[in-house]
Design a protein around this nucleic acid. Structure first.
Lengths: 227, 227
DNA sequence: GGGTTATGTTACAGATTTGTTAAATATTTA
DNA sequence: TAAATATTTAACAAATCTGTAACATAACCC
């Protein structure tokens, strides 16, 4: 499970609960307690799904949602609205915010999880399922094995992570900075050339003699999984 | 546990919840939201147990159940009826559908699990059996004896528990944290390196000279039972 | 072409992770 | 309570991975 979930929630206990449980499930989780900040962060580091509280101190959830759905770079990200019980689900649905799903607090986490997975599966099947496939390349995330044309391939941890990220959206070009951020993590400082080296190693690992390599270089932009 | 459970349920959240939790328990799960389709699929790929919602959009659960019980190829498959609270259990039982068991919604999943296992044990003792086997490795959970190639193996309590956990889903990679949580329990005041030591001992115990060890290390991820 | 910039590749030092052993604690058994 | 068993920690060795620098090659631009 590779997906990045953004939580917009001002009640600390709920936010922490979500974060803890989602991370336990293997999601990468970021969060924000207020709407303005959320909007900025979401556009900077585009997540795969958004959990959005209905009631927020500044911008209300409904406004954020509408705003997101107008922005073409993020409008395809599924949004799940979290509403308190008193807020009458029917009424809220009537607002037509564009949210993909609703959960009423207090909610059962497993149920939320099911909905998250089902939405992610719909939008980005390679992110959420136990198996990611691109052409003859297969990643089994349960056994953590990678194979190409049924031949098993051995990857180091970074290469595995890198490939897992690239396969999220095959053919999409990721810049070195994006890769560093998503695969390496925000904290550490590594040169962007390091990405090149790992790409080389990944290429060699998944290469099959005589067949076009599976990773494309886009000069002055980055790399993508594609042949 | 490799039993195949078929879920007939039109309420999506419940269906997904069941699917998620049952799969987590190691069952193979298929499902259908309507009766007609369910009947077809069930007869095509005969499951080991059926969870059947009482209220369905087209055929009602009771009709499906009666139908199943008339068909000699599937009539021995145990059926658990799921009934909503208002539907008065007594009355339903009076219908004499032939279902093996009943659960009233909302139900507790652990309880459902207990009933599922007990039914499976009755009908197909080898599926839920007290014996777990992977390749030439065998765990007899009654006598608590482990053997490989008919040779008996002596394990300490932790190693036994660890192996029992790993064998639930062979080839699946478990992180040290997962193992600590599942095998050691919640009082997590144990270093994660402790897992390594026990893995080493388990390896030595189940090792056979000249044969590839049965436990795989996945660097920076964890371990799996696999050769 | 010739200069410039971006990318590919390799080798190596250093970092990280894992395997293994042994000794220190804790727990059970007799 | 002493002895036997199990478990945990610590320590070091071994295996593997990572980042950087250096150089090679390719692509771009005038």
């Amino acid at each position: 499970m590779n997906a990045h979930i953004f939580v917009v929630e001002d009640e600390k206990p709920i936010q922490e609960l979500l974060q803890y449980n989602l991370e336990k499930e293997g999601f990468k989780v970021s969060s924000s307690a207020n709407g303005e900040e959320a909007l900025e962060t979401i556009k900077e580091k585009v997540p795969d799904l958004i959990l959005l509280d209905w009631m927020l101190p500044d911008l209300s959830g409904i406004k954020i949602c509408r705003y997101l759905k107008q922005d073409k770079t993020v409008k395809n990200i599924p949004v799940i609205m979290l509403t308190a019980k008193g807020e009458e689900e029917d009424k809220i649905k009537g607002f037509n915010t564009g949210a993909e799903d609703y959960m009423t607090k207090p909610f059962s986490f497993p149920e939320l999880l099911v909905r998250i997975k089902s939405l992610l599966k719909r939008v980005k099947p390679n992110i959420v399922s136990d198996e990611a496939i691109y052409l003859d390349l297969k990643i089994d995330r349960v056994s953590m094995k990678v194979s190409r044309k049924e031949k098993e391939i051995n990857l180091g941890p970074k290469e595995y992570k890198l490939l897992n990220f690239l396969i999220k959206q095959p053919k999409r070009v990721y810049s070195r900075d994006q890769l560093l951020e998503q695969v390496w993590g925000d904290d550490i400082n590594v040169e962007s050339r390091t990405v090149d080296v790992h790409i080389t190693r990944l290429r060699q690992a998944i290469n099959i003699d005589g067949v076009k390599p599976l990773i494309r270089t886009v000069r002055s932009a980055g790399y993508s999984l594609e042949n």
